[in-house]
């Protein structure tokens, strides 16, 4: 566990950089986190992050498929928004733990 400061807010993160407490999340934290990885978040990115947060806080498992059905972006678009490993990256920027699903 480590402490990091994003947008003036000090938060606890795990070894992979995921927030320990999802409630500490703000949009500015997300933007700064992504910037560290060289990614500039747009409104559409933020919309996806909010969708993931809503699902997670309801206790649902996050999957790529559910993002594809969210109406915000299709799966191809999701990969484009968060290149490489979309669900992992998006979960991280959304202040959520590393995804625990296999799909």
């Amino acid at each position: 566990m480590a402490e990091k400061t994003f947008a003036g807010i000090t938060v606890q993160v795990d070894d992979d950089g995921y927030l320990i407490d999802p409630n500490q999340w703000t949009e500015d934290i997300a933007k700064e986190m992504a910037k560290e990885d060289g990614l500039e978040l747009t409104d559409q990115h933020i919309e996806v992050l909010k969708f993931l947060r809503e699902k997670y806080l309801k206790g649902e498992t996050l999957t790529i498929r559910s993002v594809g059905k969210s109406g915000i972006v299709d799966i191809k678009g999701f990969y484009k928004l968060f290149p490489g490993a979309p669900l992992k990256k998006a979960s991280k920027y959304a202040g959520l733990p590393k995804p625990s699903s296999c799909v």
Binding site: T61, T63, R65, I75, S101, V103
Partner: peptide, 12 residues
């Protein structure tokens, strides 16, 4: 478990 049918899996 949100595991899709084969055709949708291929699309993913």
């Amino acid at each position: 478990l949100d595991v899709p049918p084969v055709d949708e899996f291929l699309e993913m």
